[in-house]
């Protein structure tokens, strides 16, 4: 039986991981190292190859080239050992909508070799922990999106696996359900488990991960702690629109001076990445000093598109073109 075990050394290791689906390159040589006990985020747009990485690591997909290890075990040659160490929650690893929440968790406990009573006990414990105790007896088909995700997450934890794969755990959830799930994930990883999280949201990676790898078109484009990445790309974006279009160049110069970045100007809207929120008052004072009237001034979280633009110099493609590669 698996206990809430911890791993030592690297929990996850990949070298030169490659995978093609027909003409689409899903992974073009991905190297990752995830030390045990850390939360690691794979950040990228639809079709970047995030899910493919998770599927290879979860023994669901054979890579064309390269190798991958979980807990020191090769995912191909020692797949069964790897499966004993992992829990998978994701877009494509789902619970059975025709069973109740309780039955879903019991089923997994039984499949993991727990005696009936222990499986029932563990299921109840998880339902309580995930705020599903009242709904546990209902068919999952009647659950809300947020409840479904929580049950998905609970299902991956039945065997207390030391390595967790969370594939876009909050995509499609409303902000409230999202922050609830974040809290749950934070609590989980505080027990010493290793988690690999994929996400399309910079703020999610920022909120949860110790280390972030940005991937695009199956390649790693940046690696670092969330702080490092933020200081490189600017965690936030400052947007300024002068009331008088004639003053755009003045405003642009002021923003460039204060942020140290090269602002982008489009339709009189000046945008620039900023690392530090404290910059906002300085911008306001400066524009006031120069007598530039401002029609719009905002500081918002950088979108993934902006991060990509900063890192790769090209716009992130939208999911539309990703198609199957996105799904894979």
């Amino acid at each position: 039986m698996r206990k809430g075990a911890r791993l030592m050394g690297d929990a996850i290791l990949t070298e030169g991981l490659s995978k093609r689906f027909g003409d689409t390159t899903a992974l073009a040589g991905v190297d990752l190292r995830v030390p045990a006990g850390t939360v690691f985020a794979l950040l990228g747009p639809n079709g970047a190859g995030k899910t493919t990485v998770v599927r290879v690591l979860a023994t669901l997909l054979c890579p064309d080239a390269g190798r991958a290890e979980v807990g020191g075990h090769d995912v191909l040659r020692e797949a069964h050992r790897v499966r004993q160490l992992i829990g998978l929650t994701g877009q494509y690893a789902s619970v059975d909508t025709r069973l109740t929440g309780m039955e879903n968790l019991q089923l997994i406990g039984r499949l993991l070799g727990m005696p009936r009573r222990e499986a029932r006990h563990r299921a109840r414990e998880l339902l309580d922990q995930f705020g599903l105790a009242d709904a546990g007896g209902n068919a999952v088909g009647t659950f809300s999106g947020g409840m479904r995700r929580r049950l998905d997450l609970a299902a991956s934890l039945v065997g207390r696996p030391p390595v967790l794969f969370l594939d876009e755990p909050t995509t499609g959830l409303d902000p409230r359900a999202r922050s609830e799930l974040w809290d749950l994930i934070r609590r989980l990883v505080s027990t010493g488990a290793t988690a690999l999280l994929t996400t399309q949201y910079l703020d999610e990676a920022d909120a949860l991960a110790d280390e972030v790898v940005v991937i695009d078109h199956g390649e790693v484009v940046a690696t670092g702690t969330s702080e490092e990445l933020k200081s490189r790309v600017g965690a936030r974006t400052l947007a300024v629109r002068p009331a008088d279009p004639a003053r755009v160049q003045d405003a642009r110069a002021a923003v460039a001076d204060l942020t140290g970045a090269a602002p982008d100007v489009k339709d009189d809207l000046i945008t620039a990445p900023v690392g530090d929120a404290a910059l906002l008052p300085a911008v306001v004072r400066r524009l006031d000093d120069e007598g530039v009237l401002v029609a719009e001034l905002t500081l918002r979280g950088s979108s993934l598109a902006e991060v990509f633009f900063t890192l790769t110099g090209r716009p992130a493609e939208d999911g539309a073109g990703g198609g199957q590669a996105g799904a894979a």
Binding site: G72, R81, P162
Partner: peptide
């Protein structure tokens, strides 16, 4: 790399 304590598989 290597499995740690309590993770016998």
């Amino acid at each position: 790399t290597g499995p740690g304590n309590g993770t016998a598989t």
